[in-house]
Design a binder for these strands. Structure first.
Length: 853
RNA sequence: GCCGCUGUGGUGAAAUGGUAGACACGGGGGACUUAAAAUCCCCUGCCCCUUACCGGGCAUGCUGGUUCGAUUCCAGCCGGCGGCACCA
């Protein structure tokens, strides 16, 4: 019957034909309907491509092929995020230079990717570790420097004393070194930052125009962490200096009974009197020794120390004590808080621990009078109308509070009305916030203030395998940018990979000599390299920067005719045509890193005038995660599944269809190869049907109706990336043809085109054998005739009181009356009607009758 | 703790207010074969009635609600996954 079917041979044949015809190479300037289909570029790991990559790339390719057949000029590029730690760690272990291992990994992965048969435009490939690429990473740094976005300040790094290396946060996760288990220490280094915080509001505002998963936008919004509140200034007792705090609850100022500074706060030394200094210093040292994990452990008891200093609460005029405690973070707000223990859980815990006064200022009970006989149900405090709990009663109050903790009491953080709060009394929380801010502004003691959790981007890495920061220091240590004409500022190669505790580039003689030769004696280069997230923050532009600009034009850094010409990243016309990217597909793990950095860099480039759009990625989709035995695939767990043997056995078409058929693209799942057989059979049956059984002149009307329904379903499903159901509807149609014993040539060709995005090689082979002209991928996507999708008869389900009691077959144009009549006449239905007329009769056209008795 | 997602046969799943389990895998039975593989055909959620046909009941994590009708919408609870986590 069917001739020998050899997917490997077919796939190799068509991959070669596609390449020879260069049909996937896009002329960026001539595109009329540009569609930029982008996937997150991979890291060229020694693990090669695994099924997770396939699960990302293959369906993305199917979607891109579909868009091409719909008539778009589709550009879908591929590249490598090639700088980074794994190659360097491998070099430390093996002595093999990262450039060599990276190039070899890239080569292997390109080969594997080509075996997939995706329609990548390889002429536009990028590799972030090549000088042609990283000259632009450095150019970006210079732009940031010129626009005062790049700045230097001291910041701690994780350092492993045993390995003598700086560790990324992910490598130091539970406070110990990932590799040797040694306790990680914090070291302060002078490092480069990019001011991303200036863009916090724009990063939030931009979300509204993005077709992104809501989940991802929420994650970013939480990461940016906008808080609105007030900054309040407190006068210190006996000092000229003032203490400023940030609070989201200015309404509770009357309830602020003490202050807390972060242990690292600079005022601590100035305000602590001698008799408290010993204890304060000891506490600071204790905190400094704690690991990040110990410090952020929520289960632990709160610790702290009194400074012996006081401030004046501007609302009450009372003196309140200043403490230091490590539950206050020096990195957020002003590094200091006003503590309102009655209405903040952390302050409440702390106050109970150290017996500090707790003064309620919010009455949670909105339904009863302001002067209810107790303040909180939890506290069960007797309270006379109008009395002030704190005044003169601190001792008793604390005692009862502590008893209450033993009973599981808590503070009140919800809404309510203000009490014990002078001019705020009786107001609700929102109103009181506004009134308090207005009062503070009038008094010159505070103002409305918005704070973000987002921190500036630390881009310095004390690592070798990254783009060198293009900065040199004069003999006085003042930084100067490396002029653009010296880009790429090459990564030196005379470096051994033995960790010394310093940035590896400090070992390079060539690097230091080069700097002195160009800039003068005593000048030194910046020895740190850039975070790899910098490299990946603009790579989507570099794919487009191929003609006369960007990567292919290093000469652009030269001056022409003595004029100083500005370096441009990208041809403005191409940028306007192709950006923002039409579809971006990649993993959700990048929600708060790459996907924020790329948006930020795009915004800065727009501000500098190099691009025309504020947002790089208009539509974003996350593919699901493929796990193995419930765990994320990783080399260290030894559970990485290689696609190669499956591809060899079943072919790329079958393997990619299997991945798509497994379930919804965005959901992923646990890896299992049971079921690949089903797709294997499907592929073989398709081949048999459309080579040996194209034996009909015309197809029956019901076959034609099914065909048009299939076109409709497959079109809508691929558009929505529902590849699993697209494939199952093709299976259903093939099952129907099997029943018919054959198919017409016209229908065979249409089916072949429907298959083309999903099984591209097989589709080409069938297209050729059916006598189609050109490539299948170059054909118009089939359209359906809505009139033909309609069936001539309907099966109507009949429900009595919501339960299915039978069904009837009626012509599609049957009237409601006829259908109801027939439904009631159905013997099993009549049995349940018991001869009585139904109370209610509902007819859903073409589908169902519902009778109520 | 907070935020988000998720829960359906032995398995992957489908159906987003209208016949729950499409399409597959696996399993059982049969055909072909010396045999196996491959291929093809039939059966396959659980329970009850029945020789059989025809029927009936239960079932989408749990408990309620809205509706003629709920896997789908609403409320509360339980389990799983992911993110953030002393952010004032």
């Amino acid at each position: 019957m069917s001739q020998e079917f050899d997917p490997s041979a077919i796939e190799a044949k068509w991959q070669q034909k596609w390449e020879e015809a260069k049909i996937f190479e896009i002329d960026l300037k001539k595109a009329k309907d540009p569609y930029y289909a982008l996937v997150m570029f991979p890291y060229p790991s020694g693990d090669k491509l695994h099924v997770g990559h396939w699960y990302n790339f293959a369906p993305a390719d199917s979607a891109a092929r579909f868009m091409r057949m719909k008539g778009n000029d589709v550009m879908t590029p591929m590249g490598f995020d090639a700088f980074g730690l794994p190659a360097e760690n491998y070099a430390i272990k093996s002595g093999i230079h990262p450039d060599i291992s990276t190039r070899s990994n890239v080569q292997t992965m390109v080969k594997q990717l080509k075996r997939m048969g995706c329609m990548y435009d390889w002429s536009k490939m990028v590799n972030t570790s090549t000088p042609e690429y990283y000259r632009w990473t450095q150019w970006l740094f210079l732009q940031m420097y010129e626009h005062k976005i790049a700045y230097k300040k001291e910041a701690p790094v994780n350092f492993c004393p045993k390995c003598q290396t700086v560790l990324a946060n992910e490598q130091a996760q539970d406070g110990t070194c990932e590799r040797c288990g040694t306790t990680v220490v914090q070291k302060n280094l002078n490092q480069w930052f990019w001011k991303i915080t200036d863009y916090a509001q724009r990063l939030l505002d931009g979300h509204k125009d993005l077709d992104w998963p809501e989940k991802t936008k929420i994650m970013q919004a939480n990461w940016i962490g906008k808080s609105e509140g007030a900054e309040i200034t407190f006068d210190l007792v006996g000092h000229a200096e003032k203490l400023t705090v940030f609070t989201t609850r200015p309404d509770t100022l009357f309830g602020a009974t003490y202050m807390v500074l972060a242990p690292e706060h600079p005022l601590v030394e100035k305000i602590t009197p001698k008799d408290h200094w010993g204890a304060v210093k000891a506490y600071r040292e204790l905190v400094a020794k704690k690991t990040e994990l110990e410090r952020t452990d929520l289960a632990k008891v709160k610790t702290g120390e009194s400074t012996g200093a006081f401030v004046i609460n501007p609302a009450t005029g009372e003196q309140i004590p200043i403490w230091i405690a490590d539950y206050v973070l020096v990195t957020y707000g002003t590094g200091a808080i006003m503590a309102v223990p009655a209405h903040d859980e952390r302050d409440f815990d702390f106050a109970c621990q150290f017996e500090l006064p707790i003064k309620p200022v919010i009455d949670p009970d909105l339904s009863t009078s302001l002067f209810s006989h107790y303040v909180y149900p939890q506290y069960a405090l007797a309270k006379a109308p109008g009395s002030n709990i704190v005044g003169g009663e601190n001792e008793r109050w604390n005692k009862e509070c502590r008893e209450d903790i033993l009973r599981g009491g808590k503070c009140w953080i919800g809404p309510g009305r203000l009490i014990n709060s002078g001019f705020l009394n009786g107001m609700d929380v929102d109103e009181a916030k506004k009134r308090m801010i207005a009062w503070l502004e009038d008094e010159g003691k505070g103002r409305a203030k918005t704070t973000y959790r987002l921190r500036d981007w630390l881009i310095s890495r004390q690592r070798y395998w990254g783009a060198p920061i293009p900065i040199v220091y004069d003999p006085q240590g003042k930084p100067h940018p490396v002029p653009e004409k010296h880009l790429p500022w090459l990564l030196p190669t005379d470096v051994a990979f033995k960790p010394t505790g310093k940035s590896p580039l400090t070992e390079s003689k060539e690097f230091i000599e080069r700097t002195e030769k160009l800039f003068g004696k005593g000048w030194t280069p910046e020895f740190d390299t850039m975070d790899t997230f910098v490299c990946s923050s603009f790579y989507y532009l570099m794919y487009l920067a191929s003609e006369g600009f960007g990567m292919m034009a290093p000469h652009f850094s030269e001056t022409k005719e003595g004029k100083s010409e500005k370096n441009h990243l990208i041809d403005p016309h191409i940028e306007r045509t192709w950006m923002p990217d039409s579809m971006y597909i990649g993993g959700p793990e990048h929600a708060c890193m790459h996907l924020i950095y790329a948006r930020y860099v795009q915004m800065t480039l727009k501000d500098f005038g190099f691009v025309s759009h504020e947002e790089p990625f208009k539509k974003l989709v996350h593919q699901g995660l493929i796990t193995n035995k419930g765990a994320k695939m990783s080399k260290s767990k030894g559970n990485v599944v290689s696609p190669d043997s499956f591809v060899e056995r079943h072919g790329s078409d079958a393997f990619r269809m299997y991945l798509m058929f497994m379930g919804p693209f965005t959901e992923g799942g646990d890896w299992s190869d049971t079921g690949i057989k089903g797709i294997d059979r499907f592929v073989k049956r398709i081949h048999a049907m459309f080579t040996a059984n194209v034996n009909k002149k015309v197809d029956q009307p019901d076959v034609m109706a099914a065909l048009h329904r299939t076109i409709k379903k497959v079109t809508e499903d691929i558009e929505a990336l529902r590849f699993n159901t697209a494939i199952s509807s093709l299976m259903e149609f093939l099952n129907l043809l099997d029943g018919e014993g054959g198919v017409s040539k016209e229908t065979a060709k249409t089916f072949t085109l429907l298959l083309a995005p999903l099984a591209p090689h097989l589709a080409e082979e069938l297209w050729e054998s059916l006598g189609g002209k050109g490539f299948a991928i170059e054909q118009q996507w089939p359209t359906f005739d809505p009139a033909l999708t309609k069936a001539s008869t309907h099966v109507i389900a009949i429900q009595v009181n919501g339960k299915l009691r039978g069904d009837i077959k009626v012509p599609a144009d049957a009237s409601k009356e006829d259908v109801l009549e027939q439904a009631k006449a159905h013997p099993n239905v009549a049995k349940f009607l018991e001869g009585k007329p139904p109370k209610k009769e509902i007819y859903v056209t073409g589908k169902l009758v519902s009778l109520v008795i």
